[in-house]
Structures are given as C-alpha cells and as structure tokens.
Design a protein around this nucleic acid. Structure first.
Lengths: 195, 195
DNA sequence: AGGCGAGTGTTACCGGCGGTAACACCACGA
DNA sequence: TCGTGGTGTTACCGCCGGTAACACTCGCCT
C-alpha cells in the first residue's frame, strides 16, 4: 500500500520536475535534463513513463484535465446561456493568458507528437460536451449531424482567435471574450429563429 | 547565368525528393533519407538549405504558396459574396481532402518547428486579406479592431472543422462547406443589420 | 543468523540523428 | 603544366532517446 503511495508521489514529483524543465527549456527538453532536474538518472524516468512520449503525454494530460475542469465549471455554473458561454470563453482566455508556456507546450509540442494525443482527447471531450449542449439548447434531434460540426467550429474559432490575441494583444481579455461571444451569439440566434 | 539556372533546377529537384520522402515517411524523415532519395549525400542538402529547418521551411512555403493562390483565386472570382465565401471554403476543403499528407505535414510538422513559420505567414496573409475584405464589405472604418478578430476566428473555425471532418468524414465535402458558409453567414448577416 | 529475491539505483553503452570538417575530383584559364 | 574554384564524397563529432548489465538495500523465509 505504502509502496503504491510512494510510486504515485514519486511520479508526481517527476512530473513536476519535467514541468519545470519544459517551461524553462521549451518542449525540446531532453530526458537527461529532466532527470537531472529531478535529481535522478534517466532509467528511472523510463521505468515510470515508458518513453519520452509517455512522459510528455502524462504532462499534457495533467494540464488538459485541469483546463477541462475549469471550462466545465464555467460552462455548467448558473446564468443565462449567453452568460455561461461568455464565462467559459473568458476562462479559456484567462488560462492561456496566465500560463502561456503551458499553452505553447500543449499546442506546439515540438518533436513530442505523443503530447498531442491528450490534447486531441481534450478537444474531443470538449467538443462532445458542446455538441450535446447545443443540440439540447436548440432542441435538435439526436441524429442531427450539425451540432458536432458547430462544436468543432466553435472550439477552433476560439482557439485561433486566442492564439492571435496572445501573439499581439490588440484589446483587453474581456473585450475579446465579449466579441467572440457576440459572434457566436449571432450565429446561434440565427439558427434558433430559423429552427 | 546557366550556373544559376542549374542551382535553381537542382533546388527544385531536391525539394521534390524531400516532398516524396516526407509524404512516404511522415515529417520525421531524416536528412540522410532525403539525400538518398535525391541520389546525393547530406552535405549537398546542407549547402542548399542551411539546415533541416531551412529545407522544411522551403518545402512548407512551396505548399502554402500554392494553397494561398488557390484560395485567393476562389475568393476574388466573380459572384455574390456568399458564393465567393462558399467557393473559398470548398477550395480549402478540397485541398486537404485531396492531399491529406501535405496537410498533415503543414499542420503537425513533427520536430520541424521551422516548417511552422511559413504556415504562420500563410495564415497571417490570409487573415489580413479576410479582415480587409470584411471591413470593406461591412463599410467599417479603418481603425475598427473587430475585423482582425473575426478573420482569425473564421480561419480557425474552418481549419478546425476541416480537421475534424478529415478525421471522420461525417458528411460530403459540399455539405460541410455549405454548413460552414451558413454558420458564417448567420454572424455576417447579424453584424450587417446591426451595423 | 544467514542467505535470497524483489525493488531501486547507477554506469556505461548502442544506434541514429543533425551537422560539419577535411579531403578528392574535375574543368579551365595563365 | 600548374594552380584554383566549384562540386562531390567520406568520415567524423556531439547529442539524444533508449536499454542492458550490474550494485545496493531491505524485508522475509528457513
């Protein structure tokens, strides 16, 4: 029992060390550097995570889980649909604003393609949530093919706009989230009235 | 003079060989493999492109230029704004449908971060075009900050939806392009009437 | 007590990669 | 005939991901 706790605690410590190195050296951090940061040697890393892809995937999963929690919290809290959408978008923007290195690692994980699989999973889960919510909100039948497309489009839209905004912050965060909400709401209102 | 032609022709041949290897082995293709495919050895590659990033950037630039040409052709040809937007989206989807390996190389260039810079440039040029077109179409003042946001959002939306559609083709290409056009047109119409 | 196996750690290595220095060949003008 | 510049090659370097083989410790069974 205690041995399992030890393993888990160790794993967490290794992930923390990897996180530190990645945020310092970028995603091209070497396994040896991570091991040195953790005060151990490479084979231990490999015994815990299999290979570099496994380590990066675990690291990415950690961050995407955290982000997804924040987003569903924002999305499922009270308020009108519009408020909830705006709050969710703003939560996402806040995340990438406050931790841009994490965002960079997740979105352009150089030479760590394995880290992109958890990101894909995250995007997929988020899109599924959105698609279900949209279908429910617009009272569309289960087999309507449009909600998944809309969900993917919405996620991609917010991600791309956030990326550009992060590169050159042309306006405040709340202004951007409001603009994006307006944009979405236009399409939503149109679909709702056309329904 | 002829020596310059030779250099250019050689460069093109090398790029073609690199293209073949990348489409066969994925973006993790090694320089030695590319050199072998071209029937030469590594130092020649390095004399032409500097380093691996240079080669991949040249390769990416080639494809993005081609894609941008196709898109501006679709966008600037005749027809109503709605037709032109639909045609452009469809041209993009046709590209990623017919050459998915190229798309994969451009969008998730494993361990070739340098290949992403031309892609960024391409996206930027496309967004600038769109932003200008939107501002002109809606008769917005020059200093309005919203068109760039919208342009980024639109590009991201189409890219994300295209990606998902490519992974699991849930509907025909024309159906998807029409859906995306509808979605955009909803927001556009709203902005236009609210103007 | 005494060994004995499982787990944990290390060193030292392998193959392959990106990148480069040094050398061979070859055409051509003095 | 002898440089001389360009084109090509071989052979190497350093680094990285990944692993095999070997020490050490500690609890447990006889």
């Amino acid at each position: 029992m205690t041995v399992l706790q030890d393993r888990d605690a160790r794993r967490e410590a290794l992930l923390a060390a990897a996180d530190a190195v990645v945020q310092r050296d970028g995603a091209s951090a070497s396994m040896a550097a991570i091991a040195a940061e953790a005060g151990i040697t490479k084979p231990i890393l490999y015994r815990h995570f299999g290979d570099k892809g496994g380590l990066f995937a675990a690291l990415a999963e950690r961050h995407t889980d955290r982000l997804l929690d924040a987003l569903v919290a924002a999305l499922t809290a009270g308020g009108s649909p519009r408020e909830r959408v705006h709050r969710t978008i703003d939560a996402y923007l806040a995340m990438i604003e406050q931790e841009p290195e994490v965002y960079r690692f997740l979105v352009e994980s150089d030479e760590a393609v394995a880290a992109r699989e958890p990101v894909r999973g995250f995007v997929r889960r988020l899109e599924d949530l959105l698609a279900a919510g949209i279908a429910h909100e617009l009272r569309l039948p289960e087999d309507d093919v449009r909600p998944p497309v809309w969900a993917a489009a919405i996620v991609g839209m917010v991600q791309a706009a956030g990326e550009r905004w992060l590169a050159s912050q042309w306006c405040s965060r709340t202004a951007l989230s409001r603009q994006l909400t307006d944009l979405l709401w236009g399409a939503y209102a149109l679909q709702a009235e056309r329904r």
